[in-house]
């Protein structure tokens, strides 16, 4: 554990909390892509199956449990509790175009051809692109509420901070995991356009609005 990794995890946790409280207190999931949330639930489920096989640390277990529970809680809020507010007409990204390549790639490029390991790899690949339905929704509607922008910023920062963590781990322990690194870089790059808009608009008090 190092400072970058800790900040990355906290940023991830913050993103989830922002999203849950936004939906809960506004009693609405308008502007949120349910498809991205479904992908995240698949990501955590596939990745954290090792909860029952490997013990890393109490921190590790607690975070995994929180990420798993919160992803299902988010789906519950979107699909059941506040389903009337779900903006399905703008949430039209075809997730099979992300799921199928992630499955094929995980079967082809992995560290070890075993069920748990292929699922872990699949989750890493899928996570790197899971935000696309959400970004697509923002581009389709041309705008995002500030709270949604804060959520996206915290979620995007998380993998960016992990990249620093991987640099640090390679430098201090000689440890590196190419699959995680390459996917993490792809994931962070996908947010770059959004980061630019966030800094130039949202932080200056303006709403995130895309040019028509």
């Amino acid at each position: 554990m190092n400072i970058f990794r800790l900040l990355g995890d906290l940023s991830h946790l913050l993103a989830i909390m922002i999203l849950l409280q936004k939906i809960f207190y506004s009693r609405s999931c308008a502007g949120i892509s349910a498809k991205s949330q479904v992908l995240f639930a698949i990501v955590y489920t596939a990745r954290y199956l090792d909860l029952v096989t490997v013990y890393v640390s109490l921190y590790n277990i607690s975070m995994k449990v929180v990420f798993l529970l919160s992803s299902y809680a988010t789906l519950y809020l979107i699909y059941l509790k506040f389903r009337a507010t779900y903006d399905r007409n703008h949430d039209t990204f075809r997730i099979e175009f992300l799921l199928l390549p992630a499955i094929v790639l995980a079967l082809l490029i992995n560290h070890q051809f075993s069920a748990l390991e292929v699922l872990w790899t699949f989750s890493i690949y899928l996570e790197s692109v899971a935000i696309l339905p959400q970004l697509f929704m923002v581009s389709k509607t041309g705008e995002a509420e500030s709270i949604t922008s804060h959520y996206l910023f915290a979620l995007g920062s998380y993998r960016g901070l992990y990249i620093l963590n991987w640099f640090y781990r390679y430098w201090t322990e000689g440890h590196y995991d190419l699959i995680a690194i390459v996917a993490g870089v792809v994931q962070t790059v996908l947010y770059c356009d959004f980061f630019y808009l966030y800094v130039t608009k949202v932080l200056k008090g303006k709403k995130l609005q895309l040019p028509a």
């Binding site: 990794r5 995890d9 991830h12 990745r47 090792d50 490997v54 890393v56 640390s57 590790n60 975070m63 995994k64 990420f67 560290h111 070890q112 390991e117 872990w120 992990y162 963590n165 440890h175 995991d177 190419l178 995680a180």
Partner: peptide, 10 residues
């Protein structure tokens, strides 16, 4: 590539 350690990251 062999798997050296369990995945200790989130």
């Amino acid at each position: 590539v062999g798997l050296q350690t369990p995945h200790d990251e989130l």
